[in-house]
Design a protein around this nucleic acid. Structure first.
Lengths: 223, 223, 223, 223
DNA sequence: AATGAATGAGTATTCATTCAT
DNA sequence: AATGAATGAATACTCATTCAT
């Protein structure tokens, strides 16, 4: 890298760090919000974990609430754009798409700290109606739209039955939300909860409900 | 007695209130906790909604946290005893039992304010670990145990396949949790979410996965 | 006694207790005030230790502060009348009188709970100026007056030097106050504090300072 | 620097205050604690007397209790180190040392607000056992140790009789405590109490009890 | 851009006192 | 005389946010 060519020429630390600041703050905030919850996270702790002072944080984010929104955008919203274009260019079967979608979600959200953010947003929804609306618009709706596109594609291509799309999406979302709300690990019951197994099981079940073959009842068969 | 002659003759105000207080406070607390969340609910508001002063509330509940616990017990825990004995005396098929169970849950929890309490407990879990444990022990565990009993009965009677009971229970819980987390109404998307329809759809799907007939994949088929 | 003659004729419990109430409350209050301090003593605890309800206490004492005053009067003030007449009729030497006085004080105050009350009054003096004045007038002043009478008698009879009476009284009071302020027992240092020994030592010292023999300096030799 | 040219040029306000804050707060707290007692002193009042807001006080002292401890350390504990080294280097007679010690105590504690703190600590001892222990360890014990060292030195050098050291120390402490507990001024009796005269008188008396000459009884003659 | 000292609104809980019964 | 349910004033401490430096 450039840095290796002339280490003395590397930009003054200040400058380089300056550009990294928002990201460092966002990372710190993500960690702490997920660990401790929104209310229990002090902005000062976020700042000091990012190695800056409290005042500096407010230089980049006008309020704690905006900081949370930024964390949500940073860790989740960005994913949708990529997923959306992938769907456009996808050529495999719709069932495969759905499995791929759930898999991607698991890899990038479900098994990461981002899942904690979803849980937290659900949690704080009633305390901060504005945050709730933000989350609904920026996360829930786009996510549902993505799933809906896949389902519609499957129906259009005759791969899926003509189910009620909205309810098929709900059925897909339910296990994802369940996973995200699952307590981190310990507090659970006796046997460790195997999230991937649960997810696989659920997707099998759901796909069977969606597939075009004459099965009988399915999720949201039109009334 | 005289009182019998004139039913409008209410007992002395002080006395009557004394007995009614806890219930009135519990009702007020339920409303406010669900509306505003735990932290945002001021004990004073609970008291004044119940028509008493702040001090009086503390006569009946030693702390805000205990008040919340009492609300949980009052609105949820009590149900388990009844359900448990109903299961014992039930004679119908296990599939019918499961449908009945979900239906009962919907009637007494899912579509009532008690659902809001479940949402709230999930929400506040990380902020108040002690509350989380309480909820896990008094609600989550008994609820899961009830469902597990039905699933096991189905398996024992050859009505269900020999699925992994724990994962079958997870699969049953997922849609219930999804429903409870659903925003009250407004904030939702364009089309109103029909919870009962969702529930019916989900239970069809799940029963199909459980039933003994040779279907193929199902929830938690042993690996 | 009369009671023994006809136990069936003893007044109904209610009545008898009624007369005993103030005393029982006073005893309970003395115990608790000394054990826990003024602020930390709840009137409800006083009442329940006396076997009555909170409301009843207020029937006899109009406020917590008045209750404390009553305790002071009950446990201390009463002693002064007796001591005062004893002094009048005393014929022994003034030194013996002084020793008797300190001994009496020790027996009836110094080594009893009443000492705790003195400590408490000193403690709360700054918090409750009115109480302080009350204590000064009802206890400090009469006590000092008693001592002053003995000292004056000694001087008048040529037993003591013509010391400054006020300062002789202060010198007598100092060890008494020191004793009363001594922590109950435990918290002290390594070796147990032997109050009686301290008192004996101090009175020897003081009497030597007072005695008429040509000793040199003494407490408060007139300037 | 420029600043040196004009000594009236005060350092930037923020900076100067920062350094002065703890001291200003300590002074304010000392005043109020002594005037009103611990419980009756509101932290907000301390803060505003020091010219800062409530929050600022908590920037420097983590709790009201710690504030009181800091006041004690600031006004009393610091004196012991100086006194201790003075004793080491002292060459005069032990009687002079004792008189010097009492004099120093009077100048730096007895006639200052610090005396009020001692009174207050004695007062609040029963209400706050932890504070009591702190005071015992940080003030009572070192003070007694200092006096004990002087007494032992006197005995070792043949200036004092071989009295029981502990009880000699008690005898020395008694008049000091008496002085500190004396009401500020007003409430006293008719004639103004002359503390210095009392102190002089007492030290004469005590020294006579301690001195090696064959006098007879003395404080703590071994039994 | 960065700091960190200062701010002050916000809230659960206690307990002496009252008064209807 | 006795009760005990009801009251409400009173207070330490936290933390997001500001702004002088």
């Amino acid at each position: 890298m450039d840095q290796d060519l002339d280490t003395t020429a590397s930009p003054p630390r200040r400058t380089r760090r300056k550009e990294a600041r928002p990201g460092e703050l966002l990372d710190a905030a993500l960690d702490l919000f997920v660990e401790r919850g929104y209310a229990a996270t002090k902005v000062e702790d976020v700042a000091s974990r990012a190695g800056v002072s409290k005042g500096t944080l407010f230089l980049y984010f006008p309020s704690k609430e905006e900081l949370l929104k930024a964390v949500v955008r940073h860790s989740i919203v960005g994913l949708f754009d990529r997923w959306s274009s992938e769907i456009d260019s996808y050529t495999a079967s719709s069932a495969e798409m759905l499995i791929y979608a759930l898999d991607e979600w698991w890899k990038h959200v479900g098994c990461t700290k981002a899942a904690g953010i979803c849980k937290l947003m659900t949690a704080e929804a009633c305390n901060f109606p504005e945050l709730a609306k933000f989350y609904q618009q920026e996360v829930e709706a786009p996510g549902a739209a993505l799933l809906a596109r896949i389902v519609r594609r499957g129906i259009a291509r005759g791969e899926f039955r003509a189910v009620d799309v909205d309810y098929a999406v709900y059925a897909l979302k339910a296990p994802m939300m369940f996973l995200m709300l699952q307590p981190p690990a310990s507090a659970g019951g006796d046997r460790p909860f195997d999230a991937e197994r649960f997810l696989r099981t659920q997707s099998d079940l759901l796909l069977r409900g969606l597939e075009a073959a004459p099965h009988g009842v399915g999720p949201g068969t039109a009334p």
